[in-house]
Design a protein around this nucleic acid. Structure first.
Lengths: 202, 202
DNA sequence: GCGCTGTAGTTTGTCGACGAAATCTGGCGC
DNA sequence: GCGCCAGATTTCGTCGACAAACTACAGCGC
């Protein structure tokens, strides 16, 4: 029995941890992951680890070869990036369009907090933290849509982009982009919000 | 690509079977699925069934409530359909654009066979068979792209559409639409092929 | 030297069993 | 009759063990 508090299901916790490690580059594309290694590392049996693997496979972060285990997925090819960008834009713009007049002060408060985290990460030049908070920012927007199903549709697409998070030379630019989105939302300017969102996704 | 599906693993076979049952409407939205029932039905243990469940959850065909099991997912809301249509069009058009000048006679031969199946299903007014072959037709196109990852990205989106396959009054129209796509490809007319594909996806 | 083959060792795939959470059911108090 | 609580039952979550598939490598024949 693990000694730490359980917030979500065991497989979810494991998947979340591995996702961090992969997006942070501590696990490189091609690296093999063994079920026993991780089950020992997390102090659980192989079952939950296996389930976490399958989850991450569906999200595109791992690739599965039957009877051979999983490896960290290769980065998406350059050819595919425009497609993935277009798909992600389509979804997030759709969300913004369909909830824009229903956004509450609470929503904005949450997003503001994440924006602060983004700012901190940019200021301290911490790329890993920035990747994490950037993801959380967009996650929060997508999840604010009533239809929770939308999030499961968005996630694998967003993951493909997060795997190669090296678009900006100046990290601070990321903070400015997200601030522009949130400011536009706060001002009730839907066009500007969508414009800023589209600019941020590329 | 082989003309018939090759199933490597047990969970894959189970997932494929359940997918058929769901798309054919033999399992209705909201129906609960119990692990022991299916493990007995397929003569396997609960492990593989569990894994198949998780796979179908990620594809949007099932919904999972922790500690409560899985149910057949509700049909996508009408509000979401335009989004899903746009996403699926984006991907399939992308595939067609990026492989158009590399399509071989073998590719077309495979697609022709599936088109025949579609024709048969339309003629015998068999909606379930049509759903199945329609899915196979588009699967074959998407899978013909080098990047196998594209398929995993496409699948959950396509599934959302296949769950409500009731667009046409006259089934024969489906055959004509797919024939138009394939004829355009055969004639080397990229614009017409994309146009026909977009018409088919709605 | 080169390639094949068989064997040992590693890793995944599957299974049956146990414990935990949720649901159902019946009885009690009001 | 109605609502609530407790025990029984069902179902999921997790585990440890066994079986099957794959890998690596040494030995053999050519």
């Amino acid at each position: 029995m693990p000694t730490f508090e359980i917030f979500r299901t065991l497989p979810e916790q494991i998947a979340a941890r591995l996702q961090q490690d992969i997006l942070a580059g501590q696990l490189q594309p091609g690296d093999p992951l063994r079920e026993v290694d991780l089950s020992e590392r997390f102090g659980v049996s192989r079952g939950p680890v296996r389930e976490a693997f399958r989850q991450l496979v569906q999200q595109g972060l791992l690739v599965l070869e039957p009877n051979k285990g999983v490896r960290v997925a290769p980065n998406p090819s350059d050819e595919m990036r425009p497609l993935v960008v277009q798909l992600r834009r389509t979804i997030e713009v759709f969300v913004l369009e369909s909830i824009f007049d229903r956004i509450t002060a609470d929503d904005i408060a949450v997003w503001d907090e994440i924006l602060d985290d983004i700012k901190s990460a940019c200021e301290s030049n911490d790329l890993n933290a920035l990747t994490d908070h950037d993801l959380r920012f967009h996650q929060a927007i997508v999840k604010s849509h009533d239809d929770r199903d939308l999030f499961t549709l968005w996630q694998p697409i967003a993951m493909r982009m997060m795997m190669q998070y090296n678009r900006l030379d100046d990290l601070m630019e990321s903070y400015r982009e997200h601030k522009r989105i949130l400011d536009a939302i706060r001002a009730g300017d839907q066009w500007a919000a969508i414009e800023a969102l589209s600019t941020n996704i590329q």
